[in-house]
Simulated scan of single mutants.
Amino acid sequence: MDTPIRVIIADDLALFREGLKKVLAYIPNIHCVGEAHTPQEAISMASRLQPDIIMMDISWYGDRWTGIHAIEQIKRQTPQVAVIAMTAYPEWIEQAQRKGADMAVSKEVFNDSDQLERLLEEVLRKVRQAHTRHIITTPLTEREKQVLRLMARGALIGEVVKELSCSAGTIKRDVQNICDKLQVTNRVHAIARAYDLGILTLGSSFPPEPI
Rank of each mutant, 00 (worst) to 15 (best):
M56K: 00
V81R: 11
M56Q: 09
Q77M: 10
G62D: 12
V83E: 04
W65A: 01
R76F: 10
I54N: 00
S59W: 07
S44R: 13
A42I: 01
A70R: 02
T66K: 13
R76Y: 11
I53R: 02
L49G: 03
D57M: 05
E72Q: 11
D63A: 05
T87Q: 06
I58T: 05
A42R: 01
Q77N: 14
P51G: 10
A42V: 04
Q80K: 12
A82N: 07
I58G: 04
P79Q: 09
Q80A: 09
S59V: 15
M86D: 04
S44T: 12
I43K: 07
W60H: 05
Q73K: 05
V81E: 14
P51N: 10
M45D: 03
A46V: 02
R64A: 04
Q80D: 15
V81N: 13
D52M: 09
I71T: 14
Y61L: 08
I74L: 04
Q73S: 04
P79E: 08
G62N: 14
H69C: 00
R48Q: 15
W65Q: 10
A85T: 05
M56T: 02
Y61M: 10
Q80I: 03
Q73V: 00
A82M: 09
A46F: 04
Y61I: 04
P79D: 07
Q77H: 10
S47Y: 15
M56A: 03
R76G: 08
K75Q: 12
E72V: 00
Y61A: 08
A70L: 05
H69K: 06
I54Q: 00
A70K: 00
D57P: 13
I43P: 09
I53S: 06
S59H: 10
Y61G: 05
